[in-house]
Amino acid sequence: MTPYDAAHSQGSNVLTDGFGRTVTYLRVSVTDRCDLRCVYCMSEHMTFLPKAEVLTLEELDRIASAFVGLGVKKLRITGGEPLVRKNVMGFIEGLSRHLRSGALQELTLTTNGTQLEQFARPLAEAGVRRINVSLDTLKPELFRRLTRGGEIARVLAGIDAAQAAGLKVKINAVALKDDNAAELPELIRWAHGRGLAVTLIETMPMGEIDADRTDQYLSLSALRAELESFWTLRELPLTTGGPARYVEVAETGGQLGFITPLSHNFCEACNRVRLTCTGTLHTCLGREDAADLRAVLRGGGSASDLVDAIRMAVDTKPKGHDFHIERTLPPAVARHMSTTGG
């Protein structure tokens, strides 16, 4: 199949929702599968999607390229764990043509790091310049428990390989009240000592899991106040196209971000949408909205039909999410983060 050219998109190359926000950032999930089973992300015995429901890499390329033609400047490849998808490097290398043309400003990736030792250099050669690595603890036994069997040594080797390949690495850590809250300052010191930025994330109420998230929820507003009791946090006028708010830790010289979907809503400037590996477009992480782009592709839709479907979905993007985390309420959305795309 000939790669879809972003220039084939029809009409204006600006994608604006009903509230006047311009969408410039697409997160593309290439698989719902993962080689870890993080306790806050998925159930221990997950039922993964049948292959027939998952878009081919060519179909994912066609949709992602249509978004580039509509003015999206940043593509983030996600999963599940994206690097477990067969031939994913061919997909990423194909998308890099939009970097070379200048239509795309950034092609990046979120990963759990287990496969990075193998893929770090090919990613750099494909034009990826920075990646996010999910890492909630430096303690091997706690890592094994949180991931249900993962080996932290593989992740650390992957981070080493990524830095050696010249990739800029940011650590994403989910703040968990009972498991890693006390360790987070040390995790931050370790990362900053290696020249790695860190972003802390509140646990999000997505999908039924085996535990009650209210037991683990930690407000980052409270955590930040604690950090400020022994560190100097300087506000940074920085945005990377996501929801994080950034500070510099004066004592370490490193960058620290906070993603606070519950304690501090970040929807007013939302510029991103998510495409699942099944071709479902979600314009809000915390809503059950959905547009079926797979039906357009497999129903013989033209490039113009695909663009029309994307525009219609983005036009109805909600003003904000419905996240809540209360013991008496079900998750805000039924789908798991691994299905949505992290």
Rank of each mutant, 00 (worst) to 15 (best):
A334M: 11
D160Q: 11
H98W: 09
C41E: 02
A175K: 08
F323G: 06
D136K: 01
A103Q: 10
R76I: 02
R327M: 09
Q10V: 12
F143N: 06
T111F: 09
L285M: 12
E268K: 15
L227T: 03
A157E: 06
R145L: 15
L99R: 05
G254W: 08
V88N: 06
S304L: 06
V249N: 05
A332L: 06
L238M: 13
Q163N: 04
I63F: 09
T316H: 14
L218D: 02
L233E: 04
L123T: 10
G254C: 06
I325M: 15
R287I: 00
H45A: 12
S96A: 06
G150Q: 02
S219F: 13
L95H: 13
E228Q: 13
A334Y: 05
P331V: 03
T47D: 11
C284H: 09
A120L: 08
F258W: 11
D305Q: 08
G71H: 07
A244C: 05
K319G: 03
K317P: 00
V247Y: 12
P205A: 05
Q10P: 04
T203Y: 15
M46P: 14
V314N: 07
L60V: 08
T240E: 14
N172Y: 06
G158E: 05
F119R: 01
H336N: 10
E288V: 00
